[in-house]
């Protein structure tokens, strides 16, 4: 990656991290495989930012590049407005990261593992006890890492990141393999970290799970940016909300609802899908039941149909003909003009 080339978009001090035109290919037996292709990522400071995409979409590769673990083929990256990996040492103390699974020495105790990391960054030993207590492992610090459950390992990894008291935390698939209680715990932890003023970047392939905790999201597929923004605006791309009503005579119900100013459409057998008509504003379920009851059509069931990130993602990938985790040959890099257009469209 060239350091002298000017970045494609202006550096923004309001961003915790950003990438521009980031590209990474891997050599495989069948030639080169694109992992990340011209990715533009913008993570604002503060809050939880979901970095979403299916397995193999390039999330972990992107995170590894940001952390200096692997080298990009091209593109620029910044962390707290510092170009990385060149100036990563200047900001690394402000970044805590867990890439994929927690990785510690299995034969060492949790405390010894953290003591080594603390020694490397010059943190006092007392900090080790603090962070162990903070993640609820104070009592189990003397146990070997290999004896930990997956949830405990994940908590230990979070404790490791907290040794630095970082402003930015990067969690890569933090809930992989966890039970529901563990997932809930991690979600709560991320939220509380963000509420304490930190920026949390969480990558996941379980989109609905992140939807519950994220303030902003970036969705990628096959290493390319598909959508970004706050959760509400992304969800709006998934279509309008609707209610599905089960009635004895769907055709008659549809007529009544049309006359009442709704936009009904046939749903699964025995049901009608009701949306607000254009210009009607938000759909009101009570208005739907009232309109049907006024003609003596009584509901057997009413279910809200709200778009979620998964639907948005599926809709985006089908639009772009992108599948999940399928390797594809390297296309030629985009001409500079096309790249400039793409940036222009984003900014």
């Amino acid at each position: 990656m060239s350091t002298s080339a000017p970045p494609r978009h202006a550096r923004d001090p309001e961003l915790a991290l950003s990438t521009s035109g980031l590209r990474k290919t891997y050599r495989t037996r069948r030639g080169r495989r694109v992992a990340v292709e011209g990715l533009d990522l913008r993570v604002p400071r503060g809050g939880v930012h979901g970095f979403l995409g299916p397995n193999g979409s390039g999330k972990t590769t992107t995170i590894r590049m940001l952390l200096g673990l692997i080298r990009p083929d091209s593109g620029t990256m910044t962390v707290f407005d510092h170009p990385v990996p060149e100036r990563l040492p200047e900001v690394v103390d402000r970044v805590g990261a867990i890439v994929e699974q927690p990785k510690f020495f299995p034969a060492f105790t949790a405390r010894r593992n953290l003591e080594l990391l603390a020694a490397a960054i010059g943190a006092p030993r007392s900090r080790v006890d603090q962070v162990l207590t903070e993640v609820g492992l104070g009592e189990r610090g003397k146990d070997r890492f290999r004896s930990y459950s997956l949830g405990m390992k994940q908590r230990l990894a979070i404790a490791g990141t907290l040794l630095k008291d970082p402003e930015l935390l990067i969690f890569d698939e933090p809930t992989n393999g966890l039970d529901p209680a563990g997932i809930h715990e991690i979600r709560e932890t991320m939220r509380s970290l963000a509420d304490a003023g930190r920026t949390v970047l969480v990558s996941s392939h379980i989109l609905n799970e992140v939807q519950q905790v994220a303030d902003t999201v970036t969705i990628i597929g096959r290493g390319r940016l598909l959508a970004e923004g706050d959760v509400a605006s992304i969800l709006a791309r998934g279509g309008t909300e609707a209610v599905r009503v089960r009635v004895p005579d769907p055709a008659a119900a549809a007529e009544v609802l049309t006359a009442a100013g709704f936009a009904p459409e046939p749903g699964p057998p025995g049901t009608v899908l009701v949306r607000a008509a254009a210009g009607q504003g938000r759909l009101n379920a009570a208005s739907v039941t009232r309109a049907l009851a006024s003609r003596e059509i009584y509901l057997a069931e009413l279910v809200w149909q709200r778009p979620d990130l998964e639907e948005v993602f599926l809709s985006l990938t089908s639009e772009e003909h992108l599948g999940a985790g399928v390797s594809h040959p390297v296309p030629p890099p985009p001409p500079p003009a096309a790249a400039a257009r793409r940036d222009g469209g984003r900014s």
Partner: peptide, 18 residues
């Protein structure tokens, strides 16, 4: 070799990237 096997080298480099 143990650092590569356990993946802890990557973890280490997120603390000391030089």
């Amino acid at each position: 070799g143990a650092e590569y096997a356990t993946g802890s080298l990557a973890n280490w480099l997120t603390f000391v990237p030089q």
